[in-house]
Write a protein that binds this DNA or RNA. Structure first.
Length: 361
DNA sequence: AAGCCGGGGCG
DNA sequence: CGCCCAGGCTT
């Protein structure tokens, strides 16, 4: 069985014309984005990490603030992780920020702050996988290395009528081989970005705008009218739901928040204490916190239920507003801070939704 | 290979 | 509400 790219690329495919048409189109519609001002590898790197699983419009303000706060590799390397997470607050996938921070410190320690332009070195850095490696190498260093993301797999699956399941990790290697075979050596940066832009703007998952496509001439799926059938992708498993009580504990205008564990969901972010409803009914949850945290509490009122959908789990959180009844706020399960001071701590969206309910009461 | 890891936008 | 998105790490 022949698994090489030649299996997919027809004899009639005119690689050079394809490259020209794609690149010309990209140059004509190319947007001026903050990370496209120059070829600074640091800016390209940060942007590519932020753009993982995240749309351009969402990233723009985060990128600008991040660059203002951490203008250089060394600035970021010297920063506290809490400050890096604070800059990432709301973007999600916080391990991206922690890995980037780790990698940048590695660049300072091992490469004297100079981001390596050798792909074998770059690939060693935390958080730089096959896609990001290709993106940085092509955009910052003009090296013809494939940068295959979800967009590119969709585009390629249609142009070359590939039925590989894009949810399957091993399919990615096939797509990389195909891109490898057709990538422009003259302008790999525009070529790679053109493919991604095409996937984002024209070759969309549903109802692709084939009449506006600069490379529809080369597209096998379009010629057969089967563009909506591709790519093949198996469905993700449904998330399980976990129900929590969020204990909003107030004492003299201050509220108890605590740092989440260094591993797992929302690692190292801060939260109002959570109690799983499966473990404690409502009345027992307060009593549990009193015993465990060494606080005396009285309930004030119940809040409005907050639902939050993550990638693999759904949280339903029911806020319970309490007050410390005896003025003794000593506990080793977090710290009491004012709402104003809370702005210094990285909180997830869920926690912000709960915090919002304090302001309105 | 499968599971884990956020949040937002869109039909 | 389901699906998708400029993915990578861990197990």
């Amino acid at each position: 069985m022949n698994n090489t790219s030649t299996t997919y690329i027809p004899e009639s495919f005119d690689k050079h014309s394809f490259q020209q048409d794609l690149i010309n189109w990209y140059q004509s519609i190319r947007r001026e984005l903050p990370w496209r001002e120059n070829q600074d590898p640091y800016r390209i790197w940060v942007s590519e990490i932020m753009l993982q699983q995240t749309r351009v419009d969402t990233v723009i303000p985060y990128f600008n603030q991040f660059m203002e706060r951490f203008p250089t590799v060394k600035d970021l390397a010297n920063a506290d992780e809490q400050d890096v997470l604070k800059a990432w607050e709301g973007l999600g996938y916080y391990s991206r920020a922690r890995n980037l921070h780790t990698a940048v410190k590695e660049v300072v320690a091992t490469y004297d702050g100079q981001i390596p332009s050798e792909s074998s070195e770059l690939k060693k850095l935390k958080g730089i996988g096959p896609y990001t490696l290709g993106a940085i190498m092509s955009i910052a260093f003009d090296e013809p290395i494939p940068a295959v993301d979800g967009n590119v797999m969709r585009v390629m699956s249609r142009i070359f009528e590939m039925y590989d399941n894009i949810a399957d990790q091993k399919s990615k290697k096939k797509f990389e081989q195909v891109v490898e075979a057709v990538i422009s050596k003259e302008d790999p940066s525009s070529f790679n970005q053109g493919l991604m832009e095409l996937g984002a703007l024209i070759c969309s998952p549903k109802k692709p705008k084939c009449n506006e496509c600069p490379v529809s001439y080369y597209c096998t799926a379009f010629s057969k009218g089967i563009q909506e059938e591709l790519p093949v992708k198996t469905k993700a498993k449904k998330q399980r739901t976990i129900a929590y009580f969020a204990m909003v504990i107030e004492a003299d205008g201050q509220y108890l928040i605590q740092k989440r564990p260094a591993q797992g969901l929302l690692a190292n972010l801060w939260q109002f204490p959570l109690v799983e409803q499966a473990e404690f009914p409502k009345d027992e949850a307060i009593h549990y916190i009193e015993l465990e945290y060494g606080l005396n509490l009285e309930m004030i009122h119940e809040g409005k239920q907050v639902k939050h959908v993550f990638s693999h789990v759904i949280w339903v959180v029911y806020p319970i507003f309490c007050r410390v009844s005896d003025g003794d706020i000593s506990t080793d399960h977090g710290q009491f801070v004012t709402l104003e001071d809370m702005d210094q701590y990285p909180l997830s969206k869920v926690q912000h939704k709960i915090k919002q309910q304090i302001a309105t009461t």
